[in-house]
Deep mutational scan, measured.
Amino acid sequence: MSIQHFRVALIPFFAAFCLPVFAHPETLVKVKDAEDQLGARVGYIELDLNSGKILESFRPEERFPMMSTFKVLLCGAVLSRVDAGQEQLGRRIHYSQNDLVKYSPVTEKHLTDGMTVRELCSAAITMSDNTAANLLLTTIGGPKELTAFLHNMGDHVTRLDRWEPELNEAIPNDERDTTMPAAMATTLRKLLTGELLTLASRQQLIDWMEADKVAGPLLRSALPAGWFIADKSGASERGSRGIIAALGPDGKPSRIVVIYTTGSQATMDERNRQIAEIGASLIKHW
């Protein structure tokens, strides 16, 4: 058993032996400061991975655009179909130039040979490839079927209504393609630790998130040596930015963190910096 498999397999085991986890309101002070700095709403939640207890939250039940963070949920739905014998990670999917949409750094290189379902999930999560996400959405029946999958998990909040890139429109008060921090954190925890997916599929999902290559300026920039993080970021119109993550010290995840912001006029660099500073406060007061 690899170190990674050891880590995921023991998450339920550690729940019975973990020390009490204490919240630190200092992080919420930073979240509120980020709102002031960005001139935008910020949603935040910090969840204990083992118990599911909410440690801190700010606007946990307000809607925010999901942006590309939905791609983790999408690959969770794909893995659920794999577990049920309805899909194979090794199945190759062929597509054409007409299928390519904006920001497809991986799929645009494989027009001649296509990509496997496994490769598409990797591209969608680690590189946020939009065509990969659309191709995967097609395999499960489209955005409405992803919403149905989430409903069956008990998440009646999170919804996907459109495809890439239209889902990134982020119109104020538009509930399409949105979630709430509390709903996203709970759903992510179920995917990573619950019985919905097999152990192998849970491991695969967290491996893809751990290999994320496009979230460096966010929480990863504040991470001390030896800490673990598996994450997925997102960005969209109207100053929207977000990240969902499982992270913790000693090389294993122990908390879920979800951060969303929307409605800012700030630059992408400034949005990144504010999220990184929230992460730094979280780690300092861990």
Rank of each mutant, 00 (worst) to 15 (best):
Q204L: 13
P165L: 04
F149I: 09
K109T: 14
M268L: 11
E46D: 05
P253L: 07
V82M: 05
L10V: 14
A215V: 03
A266G: 09
V82P: 00
L73A: 09
P20N: 13
G52A: 06
P25A: 10
I125H: 00
F70C: 05
H110L: 07
L100S: 03
L160A: 08
D177A: 01
R92H: 15
K252R: 15
P25L: 08
I256F: 04
T126Q: 11
T262Y: 09
T262D: 09
S2N: 14
Q204H: 11
M115V: 05
T267C: 11
I243M: 05
K32Q: 15
P65Y: 02
T267S: 12
S80Y: 13
V157G: 07
T186E: 14
V214N: 10
L167W: 02
D177E: 01
K53E: 09
A148S: 14
Q88T: 14
L136C: 03
S281P: 05
V257D: 03
L219P: 02
T186L: 14
L282I: 14
D129A: 01
L38Y: 08
E87A: 05
L19Q: 15
T187Q: 02
D174L: 03
D231H: 05
Q88N: 13
A211Q: 15
R41T: 08
N50G: 15
T116S: 11
C75N: 00
L79F: 01
A77K: 10
A77S: 11
A200W: 06
R220Y: 00
R220C: 02
E277C: 06
E61D: 13
V106L: 10
I243G: 00
Q86R: 15
T139E: 11
S254N: 09
R91D: 03
R41D: 05
F22V: 12
E119D: 13
G226H: 09
K144T: 13
D161R: 00
L79E: 00
T186V: 15
E237C: 07
S80F: 13
T178V: 02
A170F: 13
R255E: 02
Y103C: 05
D212A: 03
T179N: 00
A9T: 15
M184T: 00
D83S: 04
E277R: 09
F22E: 12
F149C: 06
A215C: 04
H24I: 07
D161V: 03
L218H: 02
D83T: 03
L19Y: 15
E237H: 07
H24V: 08
I54T: 10
D174S: 06
K284R: 15
L167M: 11
V117A: 02
I125R: 00
A280S: 12
G216T: 09
N168E: 02
P165R: 03
C18L: 06
D177G: 02
L223K: 05
S240Q: 07
L146A: 03
